[in-house]
């Protein structure tokens, strides 16, 4: 597996607060990778480090084989659409395209014009007068027409209404299929990711909770419902992600490669959202339960 992004013990400190600590992860090339996690997990910081907007305080990060932001060659390889999709309010749509053409040797002008035309954007309109969805589309067009190897999108649709969100993501998917670039996309809306991503990383307090291809993850995670029992009695190859008990019933979410043979369980598949929530919730519970987890430490810092 070739990695398009490789982070080792990566950390970033703002003033006195660590936004990302000891983060180690790899993102494979040729995938649309969804980066999901609760607020404050370090998603934006990680992506900003990957784009070279920030420099790491600790550890190393390598993107497309180079240090982020190290020079024009590296900048050409990575496209980045920042949170809130910034554009120059006073510049028109066609000014933005000219900006892209002037500032990027690899600029694909035909692609950019085609997209703007298809989106129905008026080239003479100022970006400040565009709707949120149109602005996101314009920023995305700039990112795509730069023809990067890796396109990083930091919550590109967070500010959009559901319809605009669907359109932007649909568009993104088409572009990815057409040009075959790697994409890393962060969001806390799992439903969005489910629509476009084929690879998933759940990041909670800087740590990778689970990573893998979405199909594989869904195939190896199950919801078990059955009479109440102690989870310690489960077979060794069944890893419990979350467990909830009532007086008479136990509901588990487990990960296992092997088939589930115990007839006491009612086995059902789970959706991506449940899977992500199970992992996000796990850290919180483990932390507060044992008192030695990462969550309390985070609260002290906060």
């Amino acid at each position: 597996m070739t990695a398009v992004l490789r982070a080792r013990a990566l950390g970033k400190k703002y003033q006195r607060r660590w936004a990302l600590t000891d983060c180690t992860l790899e993102i494979p090339a040729g995938h649309v990778t969804g980066l999901v996690g609760p607020n404050g997990a370090g998603k934006s910081t990680l992506l900003n480090l990957a784009a070279g907007m920030l420099t790491p305080t600790a550890g190393t990060i390598e993107v497309c084989g180079g240090r982020p932001g190290s020079g024009p060659a590296q900048l050409a390889k990575v496209g980045y659409v920042a949170q809130d999709t910034p554009t120059y309010a006073r510049l028109t749509v066609s000014d933005h395209l000219r900006l892209g053409a002037r500032l990027n040797p690899s600029w694909d002008d035909a692609l950019a014009r085609r997209r703007i035309e298809r989106l129905g954007l008026d080239p003479n309109q100022r970006a400040g007068k565009l709707s949120g969805g149109q602005r996101a589309q314009l920023a995305l067009t700039l990112g795509l027409a730069k023809r990067p190897e890796l396109l990083i999108l930091d919550e590109p649709v967070a500010a959009l209404d559901p319809l605009a969100r669907r359109e932007v993501l649909q568009d993104l998917m088409e572009a990815v299929a057409e040009h075959g670039l790697s994409v890393v996309l962060s969001s806390h809306l799992v439903a969005d990711l489910e629509r476009v991503c084929d690879h998933l990383i759940v990041l909670v307090t800087s740590q990778v909770e689970i990573t893998g291809e979405i199909d594989g993850l869904l195939a190896t995670h199950h919801r078990l419902v059955g009479p109440r029992r102690d989870i310690a009695t489960l077979p060794a190859d069944q890893h419990v992600i979350s467990a909830s008990h009532t007086d008479r019933q136990t509901t588990l979410i487990i990960r296992t490669e092997a088939p589930i043979l115990d007839p006491a369980w009612t086995v059902s598949t789970i959706g991506l959202e449940d899977l992500v929530l199970a992992y996000m919730g796990r850290t919180a519970r483990v932390g507060s339960g044992s008192g030695s987890g990462r969550r309390p430490a985070l609260e002290v810092l906060r």
Partner: peptide
């Protein structure tokens, strides 16, 4: 203030 530095700094220009 407008956040546009994030656009400018991610073109192929240091």
């Amino acid at each position: 203030e407008a956040g546009t530095y994030r656009l400018a700094w991610n073109q192929t220009v240091t």
